[in-house]
Design a protein around this nucleic acid. Sequence first.
DNA 1: CTGAAAGCGCTTACAG
DNA 2: CTGAAAGCGCTTACAG
Lengths: 339, 339
Amino acid sequence: MAQNKVTSAEVAARAGVSQSAVSRVFTPGASASAKTVEKVRTAAAELGYRPNVLARAMVSGRSRIIGLVVAYLENQFYPVALELLSNALQAKGYHILIFTAPNSTDGIDSVLQDLMDYQVDGIVAASVSMSSDLAARARSAGIPVVLFNRGQNGEGFSNVTSNNVLGGAKVAEFLMAGGHERIAHIAGWQGSSTGRDRQEGFVSALEAAGHEPFDVLEGMYKRDIAMAAARSLVDRPDPADAIFVGNDHMAFAVMDAVRDAGMTPGRDISIVGYDDVPMASWGSYDLTTLRQPVNRMVDATVETLIDQIETTAGKPGLFEIEGELIVRSSARIPEGWTQ
Amino acid sequence: MAQNKVTSAEVAARAGVSQSAVSRVFTPGASASAKTVEKVRTAAAELGYRPNVLARAMVSGRSRIIGLVVAYLENQFYPVALELLSNALQAKGYHILIFTAPNSTDGIDSVLQDLMDYQVDGIVAASVSMSSDLAARARSAGIPVVLFNRGQNGEGFSNVTSNNVLGGAKVAEFLMAGGHERIAHIAGWQGSSTGRDRQEGFVSALEAAGHEPFDVLEGMYKRDIAMAAARSLVDRPDPADAIFVGNDHMAFAVMDAVRDAGMTPGRDISIVGYDDVPMASWGSYDLTTLRQPVNRMVDATVETLIDQIETTAGKPGLFEIEGELIVRSSARIPEGWTQ
DNA sequence: CTGAAAGCGCTTACAG
DNA sequence: CTGAAAGCGCTTACAG
């Protein structure tokens, strides 16, 4: 291996200037004469010089690395969010160091600790919670943290979610308007704020209208558990006539289970999901679902992160973005339904 | 912000030893007496000290960062591979810095250049090609490169793919054994080795058996293009009776299009994909497909990468891993078919 | 085993 | 505008 790592000193020698001059030419906003810039740029080009980001990070205290912790890549919502986040951050000169999270809180804490060892400028934790201890460490290290698609209060970090309570309520309204009588819920993991909030919004809206939920089962955001729950809702003398499922990933499983039982979603039973992942619009599912505005969630994430990194006034914030119901064919459409 | 970045010097002061001693305690394989280790560990714990990975990288020349370039996250194959890769690398103490690739070669080159600025120890390029110029830069910088799911010869980097030619041939055999007469192909992007190789293996096997492909259209790995292609294959007096689709992502689109035309896959027409992404086994598709052994592809990737980073003898290699046909219900099963 | 010292490749006051 | 110098937080020969 040639190992030709060209340094600024070598460029300086070739250009006949000091090493500091080379550094200034590559530092946005630093002052250098046109002549110097010219000499340095040509020498750099001839040698193939590029500044060492790590060395720069050491002295400037900015690594331009954002740590991302993700858990559920099988749920299409997260790859989509990851891609958008990466693009948005790249456009601002930051890059993502990715860490896949184990299931336990302990595991997540150690992963976050690893992340901080890389001197990341900020952390995005997607669909995971963090301990108070770790939150305190991040805070004292001055590293802003954004919880993405997860709410958790009082630790000094930002939360970016959709308005899950409202979203659950919208689904309830839609299903009641459709004249359903036995409306069940296969909830997301109750250890997560998304799972709890969607359930709460849904059940409250039902009750506010004088309806009792037919049944509420926990799907844990897992396919097999959701399928079993769906079967138990449908294999009985008085099957559910509508199921609100805690996210699209489980809703696909529920549709598969229901079809397997000989029923047609949208005709024999109504299925509604949450997220509106790309697959929800695919012909074989065509799922009615509450859309999480992932673009806007990513925008909010990037904005608050950069704001806290680059300005002294930046403070963590709570962002709850309203989602819209996307009506497709997996659930009966109420007569005269508009919107 | 407290900005309490604890340094090894502070730990040294508290422990009453030299800064070098602290460093040794945190350097695997370095020598320190039990007493020193004890004093340093307690001081470090009290202060919450952790070594700065970036500083370590500067002097050791190893960042323990692997750069990953990805393009198509909407194809479920890539999130799956990303998760496996991240886990495998994490287990070995490396982490992934992720860069999303633009479409042009120029764009990819500049992304790769950015990547190298972070002093990555290695690069995994998933489903993208790189220019000779960039390949040369990586080589001269001593950075091993693995092309994942993409073949490209002669530039001194590793390739990890499934045996796409053989895979295409296996599908042809299966479809011929099923007694199909009008066997079409919706190919992957012909600018990619996977697209070309699968097509070549498929068509060659057909021809070797005296069959002519009914039609070959390019699907570009895109849903809408694949759907249009499927419609054109089916909306005619003599529709295709079987379609081999260049990957699962397009095959789902083809199944949707075919159903839309009133046909039932597996009965009226046979559809076979390539990849075996998780979704292929979901009830609403239940797609027969040639499985890419993603676990073994990731293992090979990690192995060759680490080997080249950590040993002097490590050399780039070509890995072509054989995949297996997974028979489900989207295509007619030949009588007496076993295997 | 241990400490003093050099050095990794940069940025950034500090003088001029 | 420009150069000499200090320093970011470590690792690693080098003596002892």
